[in-house]
């Protein structure tokens, strides 16, 4: 399984601010190695954030997103002590899910 994400979820008024750092190479598939061979594309294709079973963010990413991506977003609602879950899936079918408690 891929390396863990770093997630911070903070209650801000009646919303929750979530900041996520993901561990991923995010190869575009355009780069060539020292021998001239193309390095195969390897990037996160979809990201989902859920809270209390409900999807609060759904994203489709491509090779334009850089290595070790940083995602920051807000959603309405969220109570301190409750958990926010983030899942990403990449083009190789690798998956990673992590969660954080809203503080």
């Amino acid at each position: 399984m891929a390396d863990p994400m770093r997630i911070r979820a903070t209650a801000v008024g009646d919303s929750t601010e979530v900041k996520v750092l993901m561990n991923h190479e995010m190869e575009t598939g355009q780069r060539k190695d020292a021998q001239g061979k193309t390095i195969p594309a390897w990037f996160i294709q979809s990201v989902t954030a859920t809270y209390n079973g409900k999807t609060v963010l759904s994203a489709q990413w491509g090779p334009a997103v850089s290595k070790n991506p940083f995602l920051s977003f807000k959603f309405k609602g969220g109570t301190k002590g409750e958990k926010v879950q983030i899942t990403w899936t990449d083009n190789r079918g690798d998956k990673r899910t992590d969660e954080a408690t809203i503080s």
Partner: peptide
């Protein structure tokens, strides 16, 4: 400045 991937190295 926001979201420094260095935090991933710090955790590891």
């Amino acid at each position: 400045q926001d979201g420094n991937p260095a935090e991933l190295w710090e955790a590891r």
